[in-house]
Structure formats: structure tokens, C-alpha cells
Design a protein around this nucleic acid. Sequence first.
DNA 1: CAATATACGGACCGCCAGTCCGCTTAGCAA
DNA 2: TTGCTAAGCGGACTGGCGGTCCGTATATTG
Lengths: 191, 191
Amino acid sequence: MRRERADAARNREAVLAAAARLFAERGDPERVSMDDIAAAAGVGKGTLFRRFGDRTGLIRALIEQRTEELRTAVAEGPPPLGPGAPARERVLALLDALLTFKLDHRPLTLALENAGVGSPYRNETYSVLHTQLAALLTEARKPLSDDADFLAHAMLAAVRADLVDHLSGNGMPEERMRAGLAALCDAVIEA
Amino acid sequence: MRRERADAARNREAVLAAAARLFAERGDPERVSMDDIAAAAGVGKGTLFRRFGDRTGLIRALIEQRTEELRTAVAEGPPPLGPGAPARERVLALLDALLTFKLDHRPLTLALENAGVGSPYRNETYSVLHTQLAALLTEARKPLSDDADFLAHAMLAAVRADLVDHLSGNGMPEERMRAGLAALCDAVIEA
DNA sequence: CAATATACGGACCGCCAGTCCGCTTAGCAA
DNA sequence: TTGCTAAGCGGACTGGCGGTCCGTATATTG
């Protein structure tokens, strides 16, 4: 397996950057076509599809790229998000970070989770986060931890991009969401 | 406003039935085109669009139709789902009924929640259920009930069709989901 | 039975994801 | 530097989709 050619690498970055920009600019991911992305990246359509396979592949690549920072912050960053803090604090920190991320990049995360990518659950980032969260829950609430797996899914579902978007759009202020999320964490960990 | 013409009513039912059947038959909602539905219903494409406006409208109509039974069971059926039982039992009953519904009609509910309908939150059924659930939560946990609104959203998110589908597909048995859901209810209501 | 508002249906349109293939070029070896 | 070739490039092209349009048919009413 040869090294990636320089022009290929350049184009790859250009495409990802253009896609992120377009998704962010127009609110609705459905209004961003592959042609748009190719044009904005200054690249031919063939190139784009050669790199990413299809629309889903491109969006998945975007997910990985955009969440890498978050993922490493959780895995090896400073507390309370990273290792070191007590589990229950890390749980809240993790969910809060996710909420912040989705609030800060609403249109983009909407695209990443929904844009006809089939299941939003079929990507590496989700399963990594879920595994971490489930482990933290098990640590934080020693008894009853058979349910940690499901509960972790449920808690992640509480910060899904479309839900956050819906709440935002209907006027729920950010602090209400944070408070609700904190209440959820407390509740789940107390039990 | 005149009464609906007989042929129109007949076609309306035929289209809804055909759509439900097709969504259920093929697993993936994206593999059901409007032409398919029109053909299966024995109806012209124009008729279909005249009735429902667009794809989203058709799917919304399907949602309302298919969840009516559930909605009335909650609003005026026998306990524990309907009025009469203590709030905490009704909360669990409601979520459990939703889970059952989505397990029993996986492909259809997947289509209803996801099939490019924009937000799954923009439909009457969701907001009715959310309102009910939030009220029940407020009743069941008198203090801290500022968060009832958000918590109700979170709990409904825990039984979203694509999550249930993902868990099912990855081998989580039904009882594990029910147990997890029960744990979630307990946790939220205890707090 | 006549009049007409309403509904019907399928040809048609523009758009989009994805393919194909002849052309270009980066990278390497001599 | 030069020549070779695997890799990459791009945009015309295709099939199929959601949605529209409008001439035709029919349910309903008086």
C-alpha cells in the first residue's frame, strides 16, 4: 500500500472543509448536494466520490474529523472530562460537552446525525462514546449496573442533535437544557 | 366546506394502507418511492400528491393514523396506561407501550420517524405524548419538577425507533431494553 | 338529468446521487 | 533531468426520484 499522493490529500481536506462550511451555512443538510460540495471544494465530482465512496462515507469522514478533539479530550484530556475526576463528575462533563458541541454546531451536527446517513448509530464516534459512558456509569453506580449499557444509550439520546435543535428552536434556553441534563445524570447515578 | 367525495376517501385509505404495507415489507424506507406507493394503491401519482401534499405529509398522516389507538389508550383507556393508575405507574406503562409499538412495527416506525421528514419532532403525536408524559412526571415527582419538560423529552428519546432498531439489530434482547427503561423511569421519578 | 365542483392519472420537469472513462500528473528510478 | 506508470482527476452522462400540470372523468346536488 503506497503513501497517499499529495494532491489527493490536499483535495481530501478541501472537500471536508467545503462540506462542513456548506452544511453550516445552509441550515438544512438536504439543501447541500454533492455537486455543491465538489464545486465549493474546487474539485470534480468524480474525485469526491472516488475518495469517499458515497454521501454517507463523506459524512462519516466529517464526523470522525470534527469529533476527534472531543474524543481525545475524553480519553486523555484533563479532568473533569478526562481521566482523574470521579466517575459521576465525568459523566456530567461528558454529556455537557456533547450538548455544548451540538449547540455550537447546530446545522453541522444535524447533518452529521441525520442527513440520510441511515442510522446515526453506525459510526465509530458513537460507539466509542457509548463505551466510555457505559463504563463510567458502571463505575459510578456499582449496583444495578446491568442496565448501564442501555442507560448510556438513553443518556446519549437525550442530547441528539435534532432534539437539541428542536428545543432550541422552540425557545428552551440553554440553561434549562443543562439543568435538565444534570438532573438526568443525578437521577441515573443516584438509583 | 363540502363533504369529502366518496372516491377520494376510498383512495385516501388505499394509499395509507399501501404505504404502510410497503414500508413494512422493505426494511429501508428510502427504498419506497412515491411511485411505488401510488402503483401499489392502484392510484395515479397526481392523486397521491393532491391528497397529501408531499412525502412528508403522507408520512405524517400515516403517523397520526397508526398511533391513534395508542394515543386514545393513554388519554382515556383503562389503567395502568389510561387515567386512574398512580402517575409513576402510568409513566412506565406509557414508555413500555411505546417500546412495544416500535418493536412490533420496526420498519414502519423507522420510516415514520426518519424517512427524510425533517424533524421527527414536528408532528402532533409527539407533542401530545410529550405533554402527557411531562404532566405525569410533574405529578409523580413534586419537587424539582422544573425539569419535567426536558426529562420527558429525554425519556421519549430513549425509545426512538432508530435506537430501538439499533439495539435489536445488535442483539440486545427485548427484556434488557424493558429492564433498562424501567430503571430509567425509577431513577427519574425517585430523584 | 344537467351542471359543476371535485378528483383522477400519467406524461413531464428539474434535480440529484452515483458511474465511467479518456486525460493529467505526482512520484520514483535511472 | 528525463521517462515511465500507477494513481488521481473531472465532468458528461445515466437512472430514478419528488413534485407539477392539465386535459379528462365522475360524484354530487337540485
